[in-house]
Structure formats: C-alpha cells, structure tokens
Design a protein around this nucleic acid. Structure first.
Lengths: 222, 222
DNA sequence: ACAAAATGAATGAACGTTTGTTCATTATTA
DNA sequence: TAATAATGAACAAACGTTCATTCATTTTGT
C-alpha cells in the first residue's frame, strides 16, 4: 500500500483548534492558524473535516464526551448526587484554571448563535443533562420543577459565565479566586434544590429538612 | 453653511446594528449590512464611529443606560428590592419576546472575548450592579456573601443564558414559555438570597424567616 | 435680489487584508 | 512503480476601512 495515515495529527488539530478558538473566538480563528499551530497542512485538515463547522462540532462532541465521562467517574465512586454535582462544577473550574482555552472555546461556541450545533451533539447534551436529572431527582437533590434545560443552565452555563466574566476583568483581576468554585457549586446546588438551603436543618426548629417535600411543587413536570 | 446633519440617521444606525448583530453575531455582521439596513452610506457610519468596535461600545452603553433607567423606574415606584429584581428580570424577558435581537446582540457581545469593552461601559455596568447590591443588602434581599459580580451573573447573565438556550432549540421549541420569566426570577431571588426559600416561613415550625441572618455569613465581604 | 463661491454632510467605488476552500503537485511506502 | 497520504500555492468571496467625489445649503459680493 501507500504512506500510512499519521493518527496523532487529528488529535493535534483538535488541541490546536481548541487553543485558537479559545483565544480568538470561532469567527476570528482562521483555519490556517489552526493548521499552523497543529503543525499540519491546511489541505490535511480538509481531508478529515468537511469544513470549519464540522471541526467545531467534532470538538464540542469530544468535550461533552469528557464531561459525561467525568459524571460517570464520580458516579462510579459511589458519590452522592450532591457530591457529583459539586465535583462536576469543580471540574469545570479546574480545567479553566489549568487550560483556560478548553473552557473559553466552549463559551464562544455556546453563545454564538450564527452556527448550528449538530443534532448528534445536542442529543448527547440532552442525554447528559437527562442523566443528571434522573440522578438528582431520585436523590431529592434536584427539585421536581427543575428540568434538564435548567440543569444545563445552572450547572454548565452559570459556571461558564463566572469564568468568562473573570477573563473580562470587569469586577476583579484575572486569576480565578480559589474559593470561587465552592461558592458557585453551593449556588448551583441551592438553585437546583429550588431554594432549600445547603444546611439540612431549619435555623429555628432545627428540624431536618432532608426528606421534606420541596416548596415549589406547583411547577409542572418536565 | 452646509447641509444639515440628519440626527435620525445615527439612531437608525443603532437600530440596524442591533438587528444585524443580533442575527449574525458581532463577527459575522458586516458594516456594509448595517449601513444598508439603516439606509445610510458606509462612509457616513465612519464619520460618526471610529470603527466597528466603537459602534459596539456605543450600543452596549445605550443598552446599559436603558437597564439602569428600568431599575430607577422600578425604584421610583417605591417597589421593594425583591420587586425591583423581579421586575428587572421580567423586563429582560419582555424585551426578548418582543424584540429578540435586542437581547441576542448583548449575548453575543458579552461572550465574545475577542473584543474589548470600553472602560466607560464597564464602569457603568459596575455602577448598576453596585446600586442593586446596596439596595438588596439593606433590604436583606441579597445575602452578605453576594458581590456585585454575583448580581451581574445571576440577574443578567442567567436570564440571558435562558433566552440564548431557547433560541438554540435544544431542549424545546422556540417561543419562550410564558411562565419562564417568573420561574427564572424566583431562581434569581433564591440565588441572591443565598438559599433562603421564597416562602417566608419554615415548613416545620412556621417561624418567620424574614429577619433571620443568612446561613452563609461566613463569606468574606466585598 | 441674484449668482457665484464656500462649506461640510454624505456617498460608494476602490483598496488591501483576511478568510474558507480547492486541487495540482510532491513525498512516502507497500 | 503504483497507490495514496500530505502539502501549500492559488483562488474567489467577504471583510473593514478610506477618500476622492457629489450634493445641498449657507455665505458673500455686487
């Protein structure tokens, strides 16, 4: 046969694309820059991706896969749903601290409505949120009125917004404060719990709140 | 002297820019398209704005001005801080329903880190959030651990994320459900209240919670 | 009162870049 | 040598920006 395909190249393209997209945003990220940073020719990139949008979708899918793996990893450790959610939020912040581009590129893609997310990718996203919803509801960590969309926004978009806002330097200097992940995780848990405070006892009567029904049970299901 | 400046044209440019940015995102919004939609020549646009980024900043500043006015309008009606926050969130959703571009363009600008927000604009943003923080803290609607940045993310970014996600059609069809604004407003209030539920009485002892100190008073100030 | 000159608002063709994409060519190995 | 992996110069389309030009209006000179 002929020359063998160098499989590491595709991974190099993915890594380079994440870096370039993360730095510039999807619209200001030339394919040529991605190829250069990956040490690959432009033509090679087009032999494996139908176009720029195809590359974006591949990246997003891989990222969702990783997030899904993280949830399964936490679940496999027999963690409680609360710990899974907390671990999930912390994981996002950990990645943001070590490799900001990996988070910033998602922030760009997610909020750029001018490109379409592939059906397969949105399907995976719905599955991931649906999975968390099932876990959370059965553990009563997630209130009945909360939907998969709510989880997506609270557990994923909200931390992303904190990270994005940090990099804007509007309210404080760049480095993410070390206490922020836990603070945000608490906020997320409160939100999905529909207002039940993190403490499991009422401040007055000291009654346990763990098995109580949720206040806003009037919200329709789904 | 010479021809008189047509003052309506600048306003037409602003309106057109919001529409084009809202549809395409800032990076995919040609200046030519904005000028065409405004019924104005490209050259005219450049006589009044130093460049595209200057136009973006002007738009964002005007939008923040409107949001500030809305808060002052609600405050002038002697509303409680809770009602102000609720009204603020509802206002965002109202605009999103009637003129989606007015919200979607902000979503784009806010999450596109490849362009710089002018100092004057970030200053206004900080002022607006600081104002809400002062109001909220004195009314005990906002927990002590909550910062101006938290308010920005909870009251502004969170509703924006709901609206953006809706337009992605991932979790449900397009039109914003009528009950969503109130649901999100409740969520926002819960978050800024740091988990204290909307109901003002404990589910067990029926003790009033209104004047209680907040659970997470351990958060440092600022 | 009138025409010519002066002014500056407004225009849009043209320019230089940058972009995504292609494909004729080269390099590599069976 | 035959087959195909890989290249990157070349291309067309699109972009932000410029600036020589046009045009409506006011000022000036008679």
């Amino acid at each position: 046969m002929a020359k063998q395909t160098d499989l590491t190249k595709i991974e190099r393209i993915r890594e380079a694309a994440i870096r370039v997209f993360g730095r510039n945003g999807s619209a200001n990220a030339p394919v040529a820059a991605i190829a250069r940073e990956a040490g690959v020719s432009v033509g090679y990139l087009y032999r494996h991706y139908a176009g720029k949008e195809d590359l974006l979708n591949d990246l997003l899918e891989k990222t969702l896969e990783k997030l899904g793996d993280k949830v399964e990893e936490l679940a496999a450790q027999r963690k409680s749903t609360e710990e899974i959610i907390r671990g999930f939020v912390r994981y996002i912040f950990d990645v943001a601290r070590e490799q900001p581009e990996r988070i910033l590129y998602v922030l760009h893609l997610q909020n750029d409505l001018s490109w379409k997310i592939a059906e397969s990718t949105t399907g995976r996203l719905k599955d991931l949120c649906g999975h968390l919803l099932t876990l959370g509801r059965s553990a009563k960590t997630v209130a009945p009125g909360i939907t998969a969309e709510d989880l997506y926004i609270i557990l994923f978009c909200l931390p992303l917004q904190y990270i994005g806002t940090s990099f804007r330097n509007i309210f404080r200097p760049v480095p993410l404060p070390p206490e922020l992940p836990d603070k945000v995780a608490d906020m997320c848990l409160t939100a999905v719990r529909n207002g039940e405070p993190a403490s499991d006892r009422c401040g007055y009567c000291e009654e346990k709140r763990t098995n109580r029904t949720f206040i806003s049970e009037t919200y329709e299901e789904n």
